Amino acid sequence: MALGKVLMAGWALCMALLLATLAGAVGETRYDKFLRQHVDYPRTFTLAAHRYCETMLARRRVTAPGRPCKPTNTFVHAPARDLVAACSQMPDAEGFHSTPTAMGLTACRLRGGNTRPPCTYQARQLQHHVRVSCVGGLPVHLAGTYAPLQ
């Protein structure tokens, strides 16, 4: 009887570990979500260049039917390692880390008052520094951008 309980407990533990492993395999880390929502390197060229934001936000599952349109989103056209490197920079007073150099990016801003798909965006090409918050040495949130000092 005792052996049966031990075997049952062992089986339950194995199943719990298996389920936890599978959940982690299909789950998206905060860093993975950051990459999906904000890094487009090399820059994707769409057939209709003026539709870049709509195309990328839909392709990257940032906007989707049934969800409100995201008011703004920025795509950085630099390698992910350049944004990871920002995490080694000294944080500012608000705790954000900035890239040491300006990088190419596309800033998408929702046009009009439509907050439900289909979403229409205005795109601006910029060369800005990028501010991120980091966890474990990896960027997990794009906190904003700013123009280089002239």
Rank of each mutant, 00 (worst) to 15 (best):
residue 8 M to P: 06
residue 8 M to T: 12
residue 12 A to M: 08
residue 12 A to W: 03
residue 16 A to Y: 05
residue 17 L to Y: 07
residue 19 L to M: 13
residue 20 A to F: 10
residue 26 V to W: 12
residue 27 G to P: 06
residue 29 T to G: 01
residue 30 R to H: 07
residue 32 D to L: 11
residue 33 K to L: 15
residue 36 R to A: 13
residue 36 R to S: 13
residue 37 Q to P: 13
residue 37 Q to T: 15
residue 39 V to G: 09
residue 40 D to C: 13
residue 43 R to K: 07
residue 43 R to S: 01
residue 43 R to N: 11
residue 46 T to Y: 12
residue 50 H to V: 13
residue 50 H to T: 15
residue 51 R to I: 03
residue 55 T to I: 07
residue 60 R to Q: 14
residue 61 R to W: 10
residue 65 P to L: 01
residue 65 P to D: 00
residue 67 R to N: 14
residue 67 R to P: 00
residue 67 R to T: 08
residue 70 K to Q: 15
residue 73 N to A: 02
residue 75 F to N: 04
residue 75 F to R: 09
residue 77 H to M: 08
residue 78 A to Q: 02
residue 81 R to E: 07
residue 82 D to N: 12
residue 86 A to T: 01
residue 87 C to Q: 04
residue 88 S to H: 14
residue 89 Q to I: 05
residue 89 Q to G: 03
residue 91 P to R: 00
residue 91 P to C: 00
residue 91 P to V: 00
residue 92 D to V: 09
residue 92 D to Y: 03
residue 92 D to I: 10
residue 93 A to K: 01
residue 93 A to N: 04
residue 95 G to N: 08
residue 97 H to T: 10
residue 97 H to C: 14
residue 98 S to H: 07
residue 99 T to S: 15
residue 99 T to P: 12
residue 99 T to N: 11
residue 102 A to G: 04
residue 102 A to C: 03
residue 102 A to M: 00
residue 104 G to I: 07
residue 104 G to Q: 05
residue 114 N to L: 10
residue 116 R to W: 13
residue 117 P to F: 11
residue 119 C to F: 00
residue 119 C to T: 02
residue 120 T to V: 11
residue 120 T to P: 02
residue 123 A to G: 05
residue 125 Q to W: 12
residue 129 H to W: 06
residue 130 V to W: 04
residue 133 S to A: 02
residue 137 G to N: 09
residue 137 G to M: 04
residue 138 L to G: 01
residue 139 P to M: 09
residue 139 P to W: 11
residue 140 V to W: 02
residue 140 V to T: 06
residue 143 A to L: 09
residue 144 G to S: 14
